[in-house]
Design a protein around this nucleic acid. Sequence first.
DNA 1: CTTGACCTTCCCATCATGGGAAGCCCCACA
DNA 2: TGTGGGGCTTCCCATGATGGGAAGGTCAAG
Lengths: 141, 141
Amino acid sequence: MTIGEASRASGVSEKMIRHYEAIGLLHPARQANGYRTYAQADIAVLRFIRHARDLAFPLEDIRRLLALWRDRGRASAEVRALALAHVAALEEKAHALQAMAASLKHLAAHCHGDARPDCPILDQLAEGGPVPHPEPEGHHR
Amino acid sequence: MTIGEASRASGVSEKMIRHYEAIGLLHPARQANGYRTYAQADIAVLRFIRHARDLAFPLEDIRRLLALWRDRGRASAEVRALALAHVAALEEKAHALQAMAASLKHLAAHCHGDARPDCPILDQLAEGGPVPHPEPEGHHR
DNA sequence: CTTGACCTTCCCATCATGGGAAGCCCCACA
DNA sequence: TGTGGGGCTTCCCATGATGGGAAGGTCAAG
């Protein structure tokens, strides 16, 4: 298999396949003419990487996951710990984003949003800190 | 005010202050010796940028927000629209992250996580697509 | 006049990804 | 046999926001 075929078979771009090789995640054979050659095992690795990337694992984590995958005797606890740490990171980021969205939504709710120039959103960005009185919970005004 | 003082006054690093100037968000005066000089208005801009960054506005959005801020006659609708578009983007990202976290959590829940080598997490990454049967909702097994 | 804190510019790194150029390889077709 | 084109190679550059660090100028206090 050439790199183009491997790309189609794995759903990973040629650019990325070369990059993963450059950082040592895979080691395809070479033909006499310098072309890379991919065996089924390489395609499996590429698919593995793609699925892990779909779950937003950083490549360094994927490097460890691949090592664990190749290690037939690994303890599943190791994999689980890595996965759960990533889950925690994902959730933390998600919550941070949602908190920002909520703050901004709160500000936008107080902005009439018509042709008039006064705008609590800009006022808040200009003056206040992170965000003013988000009022613990519930009913507006 | 020198850049160091401006940094302390605004909470923006010197590196970033210079960067914001390089991309045209700011135009501090220069002294004869080449040192940048920051007036109160510049500090206000830096604070504005920092607050907007705290809400994860990309710098290109901030460029527009600053223009609107400086334009005394702008319609608040414009600001609101920009903010709400950003809210949508934040929420989309947050949901994507939470979906990934949920998928991975689901897999981890099915991994006993002990010394044994078999692991549904690795199996899924190796074989399956994005994620298998997340079972619509609720009670496990 | 030296020391040290501060400023300047410039280059490099991050993380994952892609664009694009220059050049080689190979196959099919005329 | 020549040529066209598609695929392959490597190398450089860009993204977005941030920081590290080097080499060198400036200034005030000692």
